[in-house]
């Protein structure tokens, strides 16, 4: 451990992993023995996870199991307690210095972070900016493109999510479903290689869930963006995901193709979660 409490790992150890993956598709995301604690509370334990470029991964699990934390570490909103997260072959939170991984500086983190985008449960649109400005702000100030070009790209993206006619309104004037679609456009216009979606429909009225999931399905179908979708919408997970991961008490306890996980779960915890989930779903509908 170094002074900041981050485990320093020999780069050689990392290269070992890299060699194995070179045979197959190189993963765009790799969690290596990643753990996260808040004080004494261990939220994630030794997570190992590879995600291939273009893969759509759905993460399911009960509330408090650590799903959000898993995504937030990749968005650099939460620092792992130990372990390494690799993005496109580069460590996210670390930098290699003299063959050792040391905590990275802000500059390194910003560069690697530019490959990741995120959509939040509570949308987190900028309430004081018009829809158009919500979507152009980052392209102008982060990518450094001209206002005219940013506007063009933003309009194209807003058209894609069906909101090309709402450029000059403020977020508060939109429905939750529309706000969330703006948030998706805002993230996508930055062309992230990986999109994280954390229960993006949980804050929505039931009748607005569909329009948001449709947009995500479309993006998933294009196959350009790697997606990590945390969701309670099992039908949606089954339709869009290449793989479903079930997390329980901070561990990945089962993963596989949607049909296997949802139709024929092996782990007793998964069975229990899914049956509890079905009951809730039946009683709700």
């Amino acid at each position: 451990m170094n002074s900041k409490g981050v485990v320093v790992i020999e780069a050689a150890q990392l290269n070992q992993y890299a060699d194995i993956s070179a045979v197959e598709d190189k993963p765009i995301i790799r969690y290596q023995k990643v753990s996260k604690s808040f004080g004494d509370l261990k939220v994630l334990r030794d997570i190992d996870l590879d995600i291939a470029p273009g893969e759509v991964v759905a993460v399911i699990g009960s509330s408090g199991s650590g799903k959000t934390t898993l995504a937030r570490m990749l968005m650099t909103l939460e620092q792992p307690t130990s372990g390494v997260i690799m993005v496109d072959g580069e460590p996210l939170w670390h930098k290699e210095v003299n063959g050792e991984l040391v905590p990275a500086d802000e500059k390194h983190i910003r560069r690697v972070r530019s490959k990741i985008g995120m959509v939040f449960q509570q949308f987190n649109l900028f309430p004081h900016m018009t829809i158009l400005r919500n979507v152009t702000e980052a392209p102008i100030h982060v990518l450094g493109i001209s206002r005219a070009e940013a506007k063009e790209k933003a309009i194209a993206m807003l058209n894609k999510v069906g909101l090309g006619n709402k450029l000059d309104v403020f977020p508060a004037q939109l429905s939750g479903g529309q706000q969330q679609r703006v948030a998706i456009a805002r993230a996508l216009v930055m062309r992230p290689k990986v999109m994280l979606c954390d229960e993006v429909t949980s804050a929505l009225d039931p009748e607005l869930v569909g329009e948001v999931l449709e947009v995500l399905k479309e993006i998933a179908a294009e196959g350009e963006t790697t997606m990590l979708l945390i969701t309670h919408e099992m039908g949606f997970a089954r339709d869009v995901a290449d793989r479903i991961i079930f997390i329980d008490k901070g561990r990945i306890v089962e993963q596989g193709p949607p049909r296997a996980i949802l139709g024929n779960p092996r782990n007793p915890r998964t069975c229990e979660f899914l049956s509890r989930f079905r009951q809730q779903w039946i009683s709700k509908n």
């Binding site: 909103l77 972070r113 990741i116 985008g117 509570q122 649109l125 900028f126 900016m129 100030h141 982060v142």
Partner: peptide, 29 residues
Amino acid sequence: PRGQWEAATALNLSRTRTWVSIILPQAIP
């Protein structure tokens, strides 16, 4: 709200830009 900082981070806005465009315009009015 903390979500505003997090959205700014997710969009990779610089610290200065986050203050100028996102935080102060919401903090001061």
